[in-house]
Amino acid sequence: EVDTLELTRQVKEKLAKNGICQRIFGEKVLGLSQGSVSDMLSRPKPWSKLTQKGREPFIRMQLWLSDQL
């Protein structure tokens, strides 16, 4: 189980620290539009309420944070 709230907090922190905009992060890392990324980072759904497809971007965020992506 992933703590989506904590994960998105860490992602936002790393984006800010490295000067990466959400649009680029969305396109290059998540394969999503800036609007989708913005929504996901500001209002993450609980892991238990996400479908497999809904969980994929959060898994990619985890990999990106651990420099595996």
Rank of each mutant, 00 (worst) to 15 (best):
G54A: 15
G19I: 02
R9W: 02
G26R: 04
K53W: 04
S66V: 11
E6N: 11
S66T: 13
K17Y: 04
Q10M: 15
R23P: 01
L41S: 05
D39F: 03
I59G: 03
I24W: 15
G31C: 04
E56Q: 11
K17I: 04
L63V: 09
K12G: 01
E13R: 09
K45D: 09
Q68Y: 09
V29I: 15
G35F: 10
E13T: 08
Q22N: 02
T8D: 06
R60E: 01
P44E: 01
R60V: 00
E27H: 11
E1F: 10
S38K: 15
V37L: 14
R43H: 13
E56S: 06
S66M: 10
P44W: 09
G31R: 09
I24A: 09
S36F: 10
F58V: 01
S66C: 12
T51C: 03
D39Y: 03
L69M: 13
M61Q: 00
Q34T: 14
V2N: 08
G35S: 14
F58N: 00
F25E: 00
K28V: 07
L69P: 07
K17C: 06
K53G: 03
C21I: 09
S42N: 10
N18W: 09
E27R: 13
Q10S: 07
M40G: 04
R55G: 01
T8L: 07
L41P: 05
K49H: 13
A16V: 10
R43V: 05
W64Q: 00
D3F: 08
W47R: 01
G31P: 03
K17R: 10
K12N: 04
F25Y: 01
R9E: 09
R43T: 07
E56A: 10
S42F: 07
W64A: 00
G19W: 03
K49L: 13
K53D: 04
S36L: 14
F58I: 01
Q10W: 04
R9N: 11
D39H: 04
K14T: 15
Q62S: 10
G26F: 12
L41E: 02
S33A: 12
D67E: 13
S66G: 14
G19K: 13
T4K: 08
D67W: 01
T4N: 05
Q10F: 05
K17M: 10
E13M: 13
Q52P: 14
K45S: 07
E27L: 09
R43S: 15
L63F: 04
D3I: 01
D67K: 12
G31M: 03
W64T: 00
F25C: 01
G35I: 06
E13Q: 05
Q22A: 09
T51Q: 05
K12L: 03
G35Y: 08
W47H: 00
Q52N: 06
K14L: 13
G35M: 09
W64L: 00
D67C: 01
R55L: 02
P46R: 11
F25I: 01
V11H: 05
D3L: 02
R23T: 07
S38A: 14
E27C: 09
E56G: 05
P46H: 10
N18D: 08
R9C: 06
N18E: 14
L63H: 14
M40I: 13
F25T: 02
L30F: 06
